[in-house]
Design a protein around this nucleic acid. Structure first.
Length: 377
DNA sequence: AAAGGATCCAACCGCGATGGC
DNA sequence: GGCCATCGCGGTTGGATCCTT
């Protein structure tokens, strides 16, 4: 099993600048020493693949497999392509059962949920969407889903700004409070769409932030802020927020019981080490947090309701997509916080066997999910 | 109809992880 | 244990297409 997604890759260069030759240097043979170039760059074709190239690659792999060596593959086939390029073309386009375009609302929800939960771990997200590639999902998120959600969010912020009167600072505090609440909700709710899976036994999962090292309120707040993608709280002591693109980059912190709002989720183990999800309305685990934090999160159910309302940009925006991108800016827009729940973590909804039918690496990703994000209880 | 901007997405790039020698 | 070839991931790019004015 490989754990390379969970490395500290964005941090490492800062700590220990890499001095080894780059791929470009390697491939061009310009580095003083190091590995041989993976291909003869001068004779390698770049750019879009022709149907002939596709046919050659597909026919060969279907007949012989990759042979475990992508670098040698193009030579065998007689393609003037880099092995990496062949691999990418196969994985993202040519391999069987690839679906392109036309993401369903359910797929949207899964993507959003997992993004909120684990960040831009596209390979893992892709493992939950049979037939979809990480590249496809990444593109889809970057070009559509993110903009849609942010657009909705900005709209709400503008509406909120219009309501500003009186004590500005008080308002800021309130907004942060609401956003924290919502973020908590995001993280702990089970999406409405999971209803159809609610009776499905799944591998035991526990997605508490402890498994991501999110063991204190500071990390929680940072994660919430970053996962909410650009919500800039008006906060005098606000620090530069660097998005945690990888939740596991967050340093481990001393163990502390992490508060959990399980108002929509109950996890029930059975003899098969499986869980089912049922509705509940319980707050748990706040007893070990500072009282002010607890107040922020769970003291006032009416405030909760308001926050849900004020922050409702969630999957209602999916409706925007389905109606051609038009948005309704009337006051009736805050109607479907329940849909917002689909922005949050969801259990891995596609079963393991589903993964097995796809790219073998999906299985690896699934296993990683189980190990890190949804550690066995 | 044309120009310019916006969007989409296939492909590339850089780099850490892995495994063989 | 170190070196190196390769894999695989996430981020980015750039050309094609679509949309707006």
């Amino acid at each position: 099993m490989r754990f390379n997604h969970f490395n500290l890759s964005p941090l490492v260069p800062l700590l220990a600048p890499c001095t080894r030759p780059t791929d470009t240097e390697r491939e061009a043979g310009t580095a003083e020493m190091g590995r041989a170039p993976c291909c003869d760059k001068a004779n390698v074709k770049k750019g879009p693949w022709s149907p002939e190239e596709d046919a050659k690659l597909k026919a060969y792999i279907e007949q012989h497999g990759t042979g475990g060596n992508w670098i040698a593959l193009p030579q065998k086939i007689g393609l003037k392509r880099c092995g990496k390029s062949c691999r990418l073309r196969w994985l993202n386009y040519l391999r069987p059962n690839i679906k392109h375009g036309g993401f369903s609302e359910e797929e949207d929800n899964i993507i959003c949920s997992l993004y909120v939960s684990i960040g831009s771990r596209w390979s893992i997200i892709a493992a939950q969407l049979p037939g979809r590639t990480d590249n496809d999902i990444k593109n889809y998120w970057n070009t559509r889903l993110k903009k849609k959600l942010l657009g909705k969010q900005r709209k709400e912020q503008q509406a909120q700004a219009r309501r500003v009167s009186g004590n500005r600072q008080k308002q800021d505090v309130k907004r942060e409070t609401e956003n924290l609440i919502v973020a908590s909700e995001l993280i702990n709710q089970i999406p409405y769409w999971s209803a159809e899976y609610s009776s499905v036994s799944m591998p035991v999962t526990d997605v508490s932030f402890q498994h991501y090292g999110l063991n204190n309120q500071t990390s929680l707040r940072n994660l919430m802020v970053n996962k909410l993608e650009g919500i800039r709280f008006s906060n005098d002591h606000q620090q530069q927020q660097q998005p945690y693109t990888n939740a596991c980059e967050i340093p481990s912190l001393p163990n502390q019981v992490f508060p959990t709002m399980v108002n929509h989720v109950a996890v029930v183990s059975d003899e098969n080490n499986s869980v089912t999800y049922q509705p509940s309305n319980v707050f748990q685990g706040f007893e070990n947090f500072p009282s002010d934090f607890c107040e922020l999160v769970c003291v006032n159910s009416q405030q909760m309701d308001r926050s849900m309302e004020s922050f409702n940009y969630g999957m209602e925006s999916m409706d925007v997509m389905s109606n051609g991108g038009s948005t309704n800016t009337t006051s009736t827009e805050s109607t479907s916080w329940g849909d917002m729940s689909s922005l949050v973590y969801s259990p891995l909804v596609s079963d393991y066997e589903g993964c097995r039918q796809g790219n073998p690496r999906d299985v690896v990703a699934f296993e990683e999910c189980k190990y890190f994000g949804m550690q066995m209880q």
